[in-house]
């Protein structure tokens, strides 16, 4: 079996008629954590949205294969049930839907899809108990409506908590660090790191290197103009922190010594 969990080939995508992704190539293997960095508007969140299946994103060319299957054929819920999880940059507030009830319904929908028995409330509570502690999620938060009135940090912790409960094969963290203070960031990173495993791949989308001090990636990709401009190991993120993104606009990829340049050819961003 092909060891690549996710293969993105020559992906072109547009939003409201505006072309955002322009031939993006990416390959992520099980067990790996990939960071996607890049300036605002480079297409980081668009990539996350296309993989999760958000409406309004039109794929105009290219292919996304997940475990060898055409991912773009699947409905968002089928992708979730197949093991894809998106931690939202802006988690949605859902008034009137209890957080515990929601998460149990989601888990049971996925279990049902996989032909596993559904969990009753007692079994569910037992399952989540330990995971609540790691992410400092209080009972109060579980009894409230999903994300309603949550602080920025609580919302992001709640996302990672959902990930811990749903145990996806491929998790995409979309700017999970945005709006977090350092303590919340450490907590979220701890929650993420505990879920690293040989069976699970993660794509961490971030604007800043800061998060990557706590979630050390196997590969770092720099997105620019809707394609991978450079790929490297964790050190690439540090260089970006020093150099900023301005070199991308100037076309000075060479400025990043040691980085593999992305010429747009397939495999340029593939795990080495």
């Amino acid at each position: 079996m092909d060891k690549a969990m996710l293969k993105v080939r020559n992906l072109h995508a547009s939003v409201e008629g505006k072309q955002i992704l322009n031939g993006l190539d990416l390959e992520v293997n099980a067990g790996e954590v990939h960071a996607i960095m890049g300036p605002n508007g480079s297409g980081k969140s668009t990539l996350a949205s296309v993989i999760a299946g958000r409406e309004g994103y039109e794929v105009t060319d290219g292919q996304v294969l997940y475990r060898g299957r055409d991912l773009l054929e699947l409905e968002p819920e089928e992708r979730a049930c197949e093991g894809i999880f998106l931690a939202f940059q802006y988690p949605v507030e859902i008034p009137g839907v209890n957080n515990t009830y929601f998460l149990r319904a989601a888990l049971n929908a996925q279990r049902k899809y996989r032909g596993e028995p559904e969990l009753d409330s007692m079994q569910f509570l037992k399952l989540i108990r330990g995971k609540l502690e790691i992410l400092h999620i209080s009972d109060d938060l579980m009894h409230r409506a999903v994300n309603e009135g949550f602080s920025g940090g609580e919302k992001k912790r709640n996302e990672i908590f959902q990930m811990a409960v749903l145990e996806p094969a491929l998790a995409i963290l979309d700017e999970t660090d945005s709006g977090l203070d350092i303590d919340a960031l450490k907590l979220v990173a701890e929650g993420v790191n505990r879920q690293r495993s040989p069976d699970r791949a993660m794509i961490v989308v971030t604007h800043y290197q800061r998060l990557l001090e706590y979630i050390v990636p196997d590969r770092v990709h720099v997105l620019s103009g809707g394609r991978i401009a450079a790929s490297g190991d964790a050190d690439l993120a540090l260089k970006l922190e020093e150099e900023g993104y301005s070199w991308l606009a100037e076309g000075g990829i060479q400025a990043l010594e040691g980085a593999e340049t992305g010429s747009g050819g397939a495999g340029a961003a593939a795990g080495a």
Binding site: E75, V92, I94, F102, A105, A106, Y113
Partner: peptide
């Protein structure tokens, strides 16, 4: 619709 997508992204049908 943002809430609908959020729930679907967690595995619930439309």
């Amino acid at each position: 619709e943002a809430a609908v997508f959020y729930l679907r992204s967690r595995g619930l049908t439309d």
